[in-house]
């Protein structure tokens, strides 16, 4: 036997001892479990970061967000429009230096297509306190189908460095019981932009 700093003499391609083979075998089996879990969760699990993904011109995305705000705005909070979209609708959220627009009012148990994009640099969508995190990239639209499972007053913390005002970039999401939610205007004929 030799150490790792000695040149091994002769032919070193020799069968391993059984104990070593056992560990390699167990480690390999565990690696296969690790691998299988991801496709399996796509089939059976309820949290998958797949979504719709496509390139988008930031200006065009901003226009869609404006249309969305105009259609469903119910108020204003800290100078940011508050929007209550109907269940099943396309929801647009935009990150820019250094705020999230608009404030979203969602209903528990309802499903939405939540679009995320940025006007300028990378931002990080971090939903607090449930701790769900997604990257927000300028020029790309990330359309995630989300279903809030609990009511609450949530925050969107920016968790990707986006310049000197990064720490001021906090948005808001309110999730209400569907019964308690105020009546929302009917969706326009085009059902949002898509």
């Amino acid at each position: 036997m030799n150490t790792g700093i000695q040149a091994p003499p002769g032919i070193w391609w020799k069968p391993a001892h059984r104990s070593e083979k056992v560990w390699v075998g167990i480690a390999f089996a565990w690696c296969m479990v690790l691998f299988a879990m991801m496709p399996l969760w796509h089939l059976k699990g309820e949290q998958n970061p797949a979504g719709l993904r496509y390139k988008v011109d930031p200006q065009r995305y901003m226009e869609r967000t404006q249309e969305f705000i105009t259609a469903y705005q119910v108020g204003e909070d800290n100078g940011i429009p508050v929007v209550a979209p109907p269940p099943g609708s396309e929801v647009y959220l935009v990150g820019m230096m250094w705020r999230w627009t608009p404030v979203l009012k969602l209903q528990k148990g309802a499903t939405y297509r939540l679009h995320l994009s940025s006007m300028d640099v990378n931002h990080g969508f971090s939903l607090y306190p449930i701790n769900a995190n997604f990257q927000v990239v300028p020029g790309y639209d990330y359309g995630l189908k989300v279903t809030p499972t609990e009511t609450g007053d949530l925050r969107i913390v920016c968790n990707e460095f986006c310049g000197i005002g990064h720490h001021m970039m906090v948005g808001r999401v309110i999730v209400e019981d569907s019964a308690a939610a105020p009546a929302v205007p009917a969706a326009p004929a085009n059902g949002g932009a898509e």
Partner: peptide
Amino acid sequence: LVDPGFGPAWKVWNTSYAMYLAVLASMV
């Protein structure tokens, strides 16, 4: 893994270093 530029198949295959074979190396 939570970026908008890549699909699930790409993410699963690459993040696992082709079925965790580099993790296997570290475990060895």
